[in-house]
Amino acid sequence: MARLEANGTTPAIELFHVFKRYGAQPTLYDINLAVMQNEFLFITGPSGAGKTTFLRLLFLDEAVSEGHIVVNGINLQRIPRKRVPYLRRQIGVVFQDFRLIEHYSVYENVALVLEAAGFDRRYIPKRVRQVLRMVGLADAGTAYPPGLSGGEQQRVAVARAAVGKPPILLADEPTGNLDASTAALVFDLFAQLHGMGTTIIVATHDRELLGAAQGRVMRLRGGHMETEQPCS
């Protein structure tokens, strides 16, 4: 596996005293963290530790209860509602359950990101074909998600997250529904994207994946974030 080091010197994501509460009990407690540009960061912890919540805060699917998050220099607590879609275009997201649109073909699922961002219509087919080739699904453009295997669906999800060339990619348990060999394939895709300069944060409790990880690993425990393994 390639070495996954941060090349950047400026932070892509910063969290300052972030709390997230559902009711009285905080799910995340006073999180302070800086993720450097082009860093490969793993967030681990048991189920229910708040990994998904942590990621959702980063693309504003949830708002913090307290504190501040800065993404690419933008304070998420001060961003006007209208600007949220533009922030989200800077962040690709991969989910454990893929979240593909079932009645859209593979091509349409991936192209939708570029259409929503208003890319030139002549550029879209080229870029979609390029990214489908990258994930090994060049011939699956006309297929529909229900007809694909879990591994193939997750590769489509990675293609969708990467097609807009976002500087940040978040993955929530991306290998949770995959067997070991397919998981390795998906992880290789993340490594490729990291090699292209993308900042990657993967939330996982996949021990195998963490064992092979060479990036920084942070552990969420009881709402607190601790460094598990320094950047090697």
């Binding site: 979240r99 939708l112 969708r160």
Partner: peptide, 16 residues
């Protein structure tokens, strides 16, 4: 709803 959720996540504007 699935399609709409995905659109929000990928950065589609409300108008779109």
């Amino acid at each position: 709803r699935q399609e709409l959720e995905v659109m929000k996540i990928i950065g589609a504007t409300d108008g779109f």
